[in-house]
């Protein structure tokens, strides 16, 4: 059973520049935007929407650091504590020889960690059925959506006319 918990009024724009202009005027008019959906990453969208910078890269740095420490300390433990063996007359703790694997594990941990974090924070995973407003949003329509679950009729009409005045080619309402 699909649960409807939100009522959304949305406008579909034909061009990314129209959408950006509409977002700017919506923010000037202090209208609370629920979400924006685009078929491709639109430049300047995050500034227009006032999104805070993604912290994924900081997470990536931490994951990479964990990978580097894990790799280096594990090899150190194996060759100095657990099973010391002399290879080619080199010291047990032959640091330069540990660099390549330490580097590879840094990259591996950072990449896997960031990708898993990305899908987790976005709520995306195989089998997830996220409700979509319109099939053309992944093709050529740019969507600006307002949450009207608790809005009265006058408010909805005002948003409706805002969307069509700002150039939306279609304005629809949908429960998702």
């Amino acid at each position: 059973m699909r649960k409807y918990n939100k009522n959304v009024l949305y406008g579909l724009y034909d061009d990314d520049e129209q959408l950006l202009a509409a977002i700017h005027s919506a923010r000037e008019a202090h209208l609370e935007i629920d979400n924006v959906y685009t078929p491709f990453p639109v430049h300047d969208l995050e500034e227009a929407m006032g999104l805070s910078e993604s912290r994924l890269h900081m997470a990536g740095f931490v994951y990479g650091g964990i990978g580097a420490l894990f790799g280096f300390l594990f090899m150190t433990w194996v060759f100095t504590r657990d099973w010391p063996i002399i290879f080619g007359g080199k010291p047990y703790w032959s640091v330069p020889a540990f660099i390549p694997i330490t580097f590879e594990l840094t990259v591996l941990f950072a990449a896997i960690g960031m990708v898993v974090s990305f899908y987790t924070v976005c709520g995306l995973w195989p089998g997830v059925e996220n409700p979509t407003l319109d099939d053309r949003i992944t093709d050529d329509k740019f969507c600006l959506a307002f949450d009207v679950t608790n809005a009265d009729g006058g408010k909805v009409d005002a948003l409706r006319s805002f969307l069509s005045d700002s150039g939306a080619s279609e304005v629809n309402q949908k429960a998702i």
Binding site: N35, V36, Y37, T38, P39, F40, P41, V42, L45, E46, M49, L51, S54, L56, H57, M114, V115, F118, Y119, V121, C122, G123, L124, W125, P126, G127, V128, E129, N130, T132, I137, T138, C143
Partner: peptide, 18 residues
Amino acid sequence: FSFGWTGAGKHWQRWESL
């Protein structure tokens, strides 16, 4: 395959960052 991708603005921002 698409993991339920919607094209939301925040998702695109994170996607570009990633």
